[in-house]
Design a protein around this nucleic acid. Structure first.
Lengths: 145, 145
DNA sequence: TAAAATTATATTGCGCACAATGTAAATTAA
DNA sequence: TTAATTTACATTGTGCGCAATATAATTTTA
């Protein structure tokens, strides 16, 4: 059998497994915050901008489409982490803003990145280099899609 | 705002985006074979062993659980790529085997890896090094989970 | 300004992905 | 050998992730 189709030679399979494994590291930590992993990504985006953002902008930043984010944000609103407010300037826009509860959650989340970094077993230099490799690969992949 | 919680500093977010982007490269290629991406992984596993395999072994190799694989394999059987056969030696086991249609599909799939490699923009040496980096990271992550 | 095109969001449908639960067969222990 | 445990698989329920479609608001064009 040629090497090309062997499962363990596929870069995609490594990335696929790595993504699942890394996500699983987050689950027990995020459970304490009552967040799922994609919801955590939304919270990171919101904490960072610190002002209302349209769903459209979140879609772009998170590289998710409205079919994913729209129901996800509804669940997050039901959990009272965010509010969904129709923009008055442009009635097409729904602006997402943090509630007080959502803002307070940031304190607890600040413990997470260090724990994750530890689990990678990487040095800071190795982490930076890997980030660059992945960025470069991501750019190439997007060029071809 | 501290750097630690910024979305674009998260290794996990890069891996998350990369996984989605790489998967999307496969979709148009796999559509010609009437396969989804996880179904393609199953086919890779089956082509490689070239004999009936239990669902349990597929679960281990693909790092998926029965809740994912069981319905996925049913869909693949409905597409006539595989057959599900109850083992006579151990009646708990369901063995998955390729149909003639499933075996023939390998020919068409052999064109895929080279196309994907091209889309990565990597040299063979870079690919090997990245695979090693990801394997190492995956091992570390698994140690901590 | 009225019609056409675009934009932002929501919804539907399908396929993962996984935790939790159920069940039948096989193994182990008593 | 019967009872308890383990193993393999299936099912249920929930949450993504995305293609396809629908709708209302805005912008562009004629």
């Amino acid at each position: 059998m040629s090497e090309h189709l062997k499962l363990n030679n596929q870069l995609c399979f490594r990335i696929y497994k790595l993504n699942k494994s890394v996500t699983k590291l987050y689950v027990p930590l995020l459970k304490k915050l009552s967040l799922t992993y994609p919801q955590y990504l939304v919270m990171l985006a919101l904490w960072e901008v610190n002002q209302p953002v349209s769903i459209k902008k979140l879609c772009i930043q998170l590289e998710l489409d409205t079919g994913t984010l729209s129901p996800l944000l509804k669940r997050m609103e039901a959990l009272a982490f965010i509010k969904r407010v129709r923009s008055t300037k442009d009635e097409r826009l729904v602006l997402i803003e943090l509630t007080a509860k959502g803002k307070h959650l940031k304190k607890e989340a600040e413990l997470i990145p260090a724990q994750l970094f530890c689990s990678t077993g990487l040095t800071k230099e190795e982490l930076v280099m890997l980030q660059q490799s992945l960025d470069s690969l991501l750019n190439n992949v997007k060029l071809h899609s």
